[in-house]
Design a protein around this nucleic acid. Structure first.
Length: 277
DNA sequence: CTTACATCCTGATTGC
DNA sequence: TGCAATCAGGATGTAA
């Protein structure tokens, strides 16, 4: 389940291995992702060089030499792996390898996504800031713009659960179900609390907890809970450090109480009944 | 504006 | 053992 740390890990790997390469050919085996890959996509990408790799929220941004940018979202089950096999020899594409980008060093980038919740789109030069996917996003949780004052302003009058609030990409961009649970655990706040009822001090703890958790997860190259793999096909190493997510019925690593799982906003939400109030 | 919920999709897991 | 039901949850669209 790729969230900010997984996408950031992907960006860092590809920044080392793919920047400077020219995309010689694009093969589209299955264009039906969350939205259908546009007709002119391959023609708009082929022949361009990869200039730079960026990230916004859970979106990977592949900047191309003509000023356009590829926007990649991995959805729930997507992966973008850098494979060292010749494009021509890639006849045995794995199941759910939907797009392949042949690079000029005879390696290829392969987009695989069993559930096809992902998105790949070419954004014309200069249109990135106004593109619908990015335009409404809230601040990056690793930026100074995500602070307690900001969060307090958003939370005011909101009946939604605090966990829904920090998973709302318009509020803060890049946090998904796993890290929302981890952040609230560290902050000592129950995921079910109504946002407006969360005290200023607690909001401060939520903000303060966010960056260290996300940074630690990036250092571990993300969390592999089930199937996530990074650009080199490796699982993330953060899972053993999860305090709450996926630990239902197991003892809290801090106090020993049993971690509970409740549904908040149609999503599993794990918390410690003693550490989180 | 805010909130709630269905929708897309496949694979892993659970239940009988 | 096999098969069907359930769960997983990214973002989005619609309804209330």
């Amino acid at each position: 389940m790729p969230e900010l740390p997984e996408v950031e890990s992907l960006r860092r790997i590809l920044a080392r291995t793919a920047v400077g390469r020219t995309i010689e050919r694009v093969r589209i085996a299955e264009p039906r992702l969350r939205r259908k890959v546009a007709h002119g996509f391959a023609a708009g990408v082929e022949g361009r060089r990869i200039l730079r790799l960026g990230r916004r929220a859970k979106y990977l941004i592949i900047e191309l030499s003509d000023g356009a940018a590829m926007l990649v979202h991995l959805g729930m089950s997507g992966s973008l792996t850098h494979r060292g096999i010749d494009f021509d020899a890639a006849e045995f594409a794995a199941r759910h390898d939907h797009l392949e980008f042949a690079l000029d060093d005879r390696t290829r980038l392969v987009y695989n996504d069993p559930r096809r919740f992902g998105l790949i789109r070419l954004v014309p030069r200069g249109e990135l800031p106004s593109t619908p996917e990015l335009a409404g996003l809230g601040p990056e949780p690793l930026s100074a713009a995500f602070n307690a004052e900001y969060l307090a302003r958003i939370a005011r009058g909101r009946r939604a659960a605090i966990k829904n609030l920090i998973m709302d990409q318009r509020v803060v961009a890049g946090i998904g179900n796993i890290y929302a649970s981890e952040i609230l655990f560290r902050a000592g706040v129950r995921p079910t609390r109504r946002a407006a009822r969360v005290a200023r001090k607690e909001l401060e703890r939520i903000v303060a907890a966010s960056a260290p958790i996300l940074r630690a997860a990036i250092s571990s190259r993300g969390t592999t809970f089930r199937s996530y793999r990074d650009a080199e096909g490796q699982p993330g190493r953060f899972a053993p450090r999860l305090m709450a997510y996926g630990r239902e019925g197991k003892p809290c690593r801090v106090c020993g109480s049993l971690i509970r799982n409740v549904v908040v906003g149609q999503r599993a939400s794990f918390f410690c009944p003693r550490c989180q109030r």
